[in-house]
Simulated scan of single mutants.
Amino acid sequence: MDNVKIILLGYMGSGKTTIGRIVANHLKIKFLDLDSYIEHEEKMSIGSIFKEKGEVYFRKKEHDYLSQIFLKETNFVLSLGGGTPCFGDNMDLVNKNTDNSFYINVGIPELSKRLIVEKSHRPIIAHLHDDEMPEFIGKHLFERSFFYNKAHHKVKSNQNTPIEIAEAIVNSLV
């Protein structure tokens, strides 16, 4: 495979990073996580960037680094942050640079179950009570679905394992 660029997007907790690592390992290509890439380049955590420099700064840098990855890298699987597709022209940038963008679509009940366990590591939901999670996620998904659905491929994932989802992605590559 030559110059393969696979982009995974979806809500936080949808398994983008886990699935991305499996796909990259299977194809023997590089795995990149956009949030980790930003943290490495900015030499600070995403939470610190938001706190110290604000969301506008973060979203600008997010777009810049996404563009940089497409210019510099070949043969990779890239996991986007949950909000990345929804800002600027990020989804247009993604779809202009690859025919292999995948929306990992996980239902609200499953996302709630996963995120309740991870709450403390996720600043955007850390303040929520467990019973508020489904409504919060539902509202967010409603707002973001327009952007998520611009992906070339949609992968429904509820009871599927990350390995099963990764296999579906590999089997559908253009």
Score class of each variant (00 low, 15 high):
residue 3 N to H: 14
residue 5 K to T: 02
residue 6 I to D: 01
residue 7 I to F: 00
residue 10 G to Q: 11
residue 10 G to F: 09
residue 11 Y to W: 13
residue 12 M to P: 05
residue 16 K to T: 10
residue 17 T to P: 04
residue 20 G to E: 08
residue 21 R to H: 10
residue 22 I to K: 13
residue 23 V to H: 02
residue 23 V to Q: 00
residue 26 H to Y: 06
residue 26 H to K: 11
residue 27 L to A: 05
residue 29 I to N: 04
residue 30 K to D: 11
residue 32 L to V: 02
residue 32 L to P: 05
residue 32 L to A: 00
residue 35 D to F: 04
residue 36 S to T: 07
residue 36 S to K: 12
residue 37 Y to L: 06
residue 38 I to W: 00
residue 38 I to N: 03
residue 38 I to H: 03
residue 38 I to C: 04
residue 38 I to Q: 04
residue 38 I to S: 01
residue 38 I to Y: 03
residue 40 H to K: 14
residue 41 E to T: 09
residue 43 K to C: 03
residue 43 K to E: 13
residue 43 K to W: 06
residue 46 I to H: 01
residue 47 G to K: 15
residue 48 S to C: 12
residue 49 I to K: 05
residue 51 K to S: 13
residue 51 K to V: 00
residue 52 E to N: 15
residue 53 K to M: 13
residue 53 K to T: 06
residue 53 K to N: 12
residue 54 G to C: 08
residue 54 G to D: 07
residue 59 R to C: 08
residue 60 K to N: 05
residue 62 E to T: 01
residue 65 Y to S: 02
residue 67 S to L: 14
residue 67 S to P: 01
residue 68 Q to I: 01
residue 69 I to P: 03
residue 70 F to I: 07
residue 71 L to P: 00
residue 73 E to A: 10
residue 73 E to G: 04
residue 74 T to W: 00
residue 75 N to Y: 05
residue 76 F to G: 04
residue 76 F to E: 02
residue 77 V to Y: 04
residue 80 L to Q: 03
residue 80 L to R: 00
residue 81 G to T: 07
residue 81 G to I: 05
residue 84 T to Y: 03
residue 84 T to W: 03
residue 84 T to P: 03
residue 85 P to A: 06
residue 86 C to R: 00
residue 86 C to N: 00
residue 87 F to M: 08
residue 89 D to H: 12
residue 90 N to T: 11
residue 93 L to M: 13
residue 95 N to S: 12
residue 96 K to W: 05
residue 98 T to D: 08
residue 100 N to V: 09
residue 103 Y to I: 12
residue 106 V to D: 02
residue 107 G to M: 13
residue 108 I to T: 15
residue 110 E to F: 07
residue 115 L to N: 08
residue 116 I to D: 00
residue 118 E to D: 14
residue 118 E to C: 09
residue 119 K to C: 01
residue 120 S to M: 06
residue 121 H to C: 09
residue 122 R to N: 09
residue 123 P to R: 09
residue 124 I to D: 02
residue 124 I to E: 03
residue 124 I to T: 06
residue 124 I to M: 15
residue 125 I to V: 10
residue 126 A to S: 15
residue 129 H to W: 05
residue 131 D to R: 12
residue 132 E to N: 07
residue 135 E to N: 14
residue 136 F to A: 10
residue 136 F to E: 11
residue 136 F to D: 09
residue 137 I to R: 02
residue 138 G to D: 15
residue 138 G to L: 09
residue 139 K to E: 14
residue 139 K to M: 14
residue 140 H to D: 05
residue 141 L to M: 15
residue 141 L to T: 07
residue 145 S to E: 15
residue 147 F to K: 12
residue 148 Y to C: 13
residue 148 Y to W: 09
residue 150 K to F: 04
residue 150 K to C: 04
residue 150 K to M: 14
residue 152 H to M: 01
residue 153 H to C: 01
residue 153 H to Q: 03
residue 154 K to D: 08
residue 154 K to H: 13
residue 155 V to R: 11
residue 161 T to I: 06
residue 162 P to I: 05
residue 162 P to N: 02
residue 163 I to S: 07
residue 164 E to S: 08
residue 167 E to N: 14
residue 168 A to V: 06
residue 171 N to D: 13
residue 171 N to R: 08
residue 172 S to F: 02
residue 173 L to I: 15
residue 174 V to Y: 13
residue 174 V to K: 15
